[in-house]
């Protein structure tokens, strides 16, 4: 846990940073995996499962590197299955229930466009292992952006119903995007070492991409200056995360001594 009073070591900060990135991807992958078998058409069922797999795979790599950095012999699954809600540091944006397909796509677009810029910077961090991992993930992140952006266009400029649904989704989700650019002492320590991305540096590019896409999709861009929620990186979540974790962790915790690999 990060505390403002204690001086953070580079190692502690990197561990925390990797876990934040991993948590975002694991939880979003979980939400997307809920579509498996329930998608709007077979082809899209496959596409969503693919993206879910990418995210969970990215999370697995990031957790693995995190426990390596930590150096206490923990397994990546210890982080996944044996941390409680406040110890999870994912953005609230990714833990919200999957909603309808419009909601899922709106979130996918906001998150993958953000990840696109983030990964662009992360692929230059001064840590070979981290860099190599990011480069591999980046290829998939680019595709996630393409997939979700194309859907935003289709739903926005499709039928009246689809237009309304995806507009509602963006309006609903908007309050959760402010946090994407929130930075704290963890980011500061690492940025000084060239180990983290300064998210503020791409904020206006990201806003342009989002605005242009929504405009092209004949959608209204919600108010950028509206109230934005905060606190995710300090472990403050919505009520949804608790239920998600209860489901995800119950089997593993019911038999803590069992090996399932």
């Amino acid at each position: 846990m990060s505390t403002a009073t204690k001086e953070l070591t580079k190692q502690e900060a990197l561990f925390e940073y990797l876990v934040r990135l991993a948590d975002d991807r694991l939880i979003l992958g979980h939400r997307l995996s809920e579509w498996c078998g329930h998608g709007p058409i077979l082809e899209e069922d496959i596409a969503l499962a693919n993206i879910a797999l990418d995210y969970i795979g990215h999370a697995a790599n990031l957790y693995e590197y995190a426990v390596e950095i930590e150096g206490e012999g923990r397994h990546r699954d210890d982080l996944v299955y044996f941390r409680n809600d406040p110890e999870y540091k994912n953005l609230k944006l990714v833990e919200l229930p999957k909603g309808d397909f419009g909601y899922t796509i709106a979130r996918q677009f906001l998150f993958s466009s953000y990840s696109y810029y983030l990964y662009q910077l992360l692929s230059n961090v001064e840590d070979e292992q981290f860099c190599g991992m990011v480069e591999k993930h980046f290829k998939e992140v680019k595709y996630h952006l393409r997939h979700s952006r194309e859907w935003v266009l289709r739903l926005g400029d499709g039928t009246e119903e689809s237009h309304e649904r995806i507009q509602d989704a963006f309006d609903d989700i908007w309050t959760y995007v402010g946090e994407l650019f929130h930075q704290d002492d963890i980011d500061e320590v690492l940025q000084n070492e060239g180990l983290a991305a300064d998210t503020v540096s791409f904020k206006s590019d990201w806003k342009d991409l989002v605005s242009d896409t929504l405009n092209e999709a004949t959608l209204d861009v919600p108010d950028w200056d509206q109230f934005m929620v905060e606190g995710s990186r300090q472990g403050l979540h919505t009520e949804h995360l608790g239920h998600l974790l209860a489901e995800m962790q119950h089997l593993r915790r019911s038999y803590p001594d069992a090996d399932w690999e």
């Binding site: 058409i41 077979l42 082809e43 899209e44 496959i46 596409a47 693919n50 595709y143 393409r146 997939h147 194309e150 289709r154």
Partner: peptide
């Protein structure tokens, strides 16, 4: 084969399938 509403989505679906 696969089903798609247009060429772009056909390419994306082909990649995934």
């Amino acid at each position: 084969s696969l089903h798609a509403p247009d060429a772009e989505k056909a390419l994306e679906n082909a990649r995934d399938v």
